[in-house]
Amino acid sequence: MAAIISISNLTKTYASGHPALKRVDLEIHQGEIFALLGPNGAGKTTLINIVCGIVTPSAGTILAAGHDIQRDYRAARAKIGLVPQELSTDAFESVWATVSFSRGLFGHAPKPAYIEQVLRDLSLWDKRQNRIMTLSGGMKRRVMIAKALAHEPQILFLDEPTAGVDVELRRDMWALVRRLRENGVTIILTTHYIDEAEEMADRIGVIDKGELILVEEKSTLMKKLGKKQLTLNLSEPLAAIPSELGDWHLVLNGGGTELEYTFDAVDERAGIPALLQRMSDLGIRFKDLHTRQSSLEDIFVSLVSDRSGG
């Protein structure tokens, strides 16, 4: 797949001496939704701000849509839209004026029909004449998204778009992101809601302490690192796990009423039928069972805590 953004050897050390990014290499594919995950202070915003021209890199090169973001900044930036993490908007301007301003600022002639479409898509049309300061926080966030879309960017950065946003707006935003992707827009988002990345992203990158520690297709990642768990609710409690079931490394929970079997998702052959057969041979009966696949969140937590542990 063609790379729409190629980052190589990107390093950023802030004036304070803090190394926020350490030799990061990353390619974003044309048309994908890429989720950048990482704990607070990992360097996500720094990375985004460098690509968008807000922070100066200490070293490294970045191409956006084939243009060097420093040498050829005009062409590169014209393709990029940014919704920053911080909610910062004008106060006295109307929604319509501020979104139209953004389109002009990015070098485009006015196109009221397009601005109208964007405002309608974001449920802002009724508010177009309102001053921004009279809007709620969630509405302001929509305004910021509308501003970022005003110049019809091919690449959209969403830095924690759903922080402090209610469930409905979150759903709306996911729907919008999907629509944009269908129209060929490449989307890079950061989030602390891992379920969001799991729901939305095609690929996932994890950044920690300025290092990109993993980039993977979401599905591969889930397969590779995901664990499945089978829980059996027993009809009668067991005092201990019978030695005949030793092969499965079971765990006994709930005062002897729950048997838990953890297995690799890749390793589906792992013998559930055999386990159930053996249990019935031993006369252990169960009244219910369920399986659970570990979420991206579990994967993420284990990744990051492994690193800080050692």
């Binding site: 968008c52 021209g53 807000i54 900044y73 005009r74 062409a75 590169a76 930036r77 014209a78 990029i80 940014l82 920053p84 911080e86 910062s88 908007t89 004008d90 106060a91 953004s102 600022l105 990015f106 070098g107 501003k147």
Partner: peptide, 14 residues
């Protein structure tokens, strides 16, 4: 002061 400068800095303007 308000932070809206991000837009100016990210715009394709000289």
């Amino acid at each position: 002061f308000t932070g809206t400068i991000y837009e100016l800095l990210s715009a394709p303007v000289s």
